[in-house]
Amino acid sequence: AQVHVDGVTYDFDNPEEAEKFAREMAKRKGGTVEVKNDQWHVE
C-alpha cells in the first residue's frame, strides 16, 4: 500500500500500517486523508 504525503510516496507491505501512518500524518498536519485507487493521500 502506498501513502502520499506532500509529494513523497511511502511504501508499506501492510495496508493496516499504511492506514495508521496516513491517519497519524494527517493528524500532525491538521489535514485530511483520502483513499484513491487503494492509495492513501494525506492533504
Rank of each mutant, 00 (worst) to 15 (best):
Q39D: 06
K36H: 13
E17P: 00
N14G: 07
R23W: 12
N37F: 09
H4E: 07
D38V: 04
N14H: 07
H4W: 13
Y10E: 00
V35P: 04
V5W: 07
E19L: 09
V33N: 03
A22L: 05
F12D: 00
E24G: 03
V5Q: 01
G31Y: 14
V33I: 10
K36I: 14
R28K: 13
K36A: 08
Q39E: 09
R23A: 06
D38P: 05
F12A: 01
V35S: 08
R23M: 08
D13R: 07
P15N: 12
E19T: 02
V5N: 02
N37S: 07
A1K: 13
D38A: 11
E19G: 03
F21M: 01
F12K: 00
A18P: 00
Q2V: 11
A1F: 15
Q39I: 14
E17M: 06
V3K: 01
N14I: 05
V5I: 13
E19S: 03
T32K: 12
V33E: 03
M25S: 02
G7V: 01
V35W: 15
N37T: 05
Q39N: 08
D38L: 12
K36R: 14
Y10L: 03
T9I: 14
N14M: 04
A22H: 01
Q39L: 08
V35T: 07
F12W: 01
D6M: 09
K36C: 15
A1T: 14
H41D: 04
E24N: 06
A26R: 05
G31I: 08
Q39P: 05
F21Y: 05
A22F: 03
K27N: 10
D11M: 14
A22P: 00
F21W: 09
V42Q: 03
E34W: 15
Y10F: 09
V35H: 13
R28V: 11
N37M: 09
V3R: 01
W40P: 05
T32P: 04
A1G: 08
G30P: 04
E43H: 14
T32M: 09
D11W: 15
E34Q: 13
T32Q: 09
D6A: 07
E24Y: 11
E34G: 09
E24T: 05
G7A: 03
R23N: 08
Y10I: 04
K27Q: 13
R23Y: 12
G7H: 04
R28D: 06
T9W: 12
G31K: 05
P15F: 11
N14E: 06
A26S: 04
G30K: 07
F21S: 00
E19P: 00
R28M: 13
V33Q: 04
N14R: 07
A22G: 00
A1E: 03
K29S: 13
A22S: 02
H4D: 04
A1R: 13
R28N: 08
A18I: 01
W40V: 05
G30H: 09
M25L: 11
R23K: 09
Q2P: 02
E17T: 07
N37W: 07
F21N: 00
F12P: 00
R28W: 11
H41K: 07
G31E: 06
G30D: 06
V5C: 15
N37G: 14
V5G: 01
V42E: 04
W40T: 04
H4S: 07
V33Y: 07
V3T: 02
N37I: 07
A18K: 01
E34D: 09
V42A: 03
V3F: 02
A1M: 13
G30E: 06
E43T: 15
R28I: 13
E43R: 15
A18V: 01
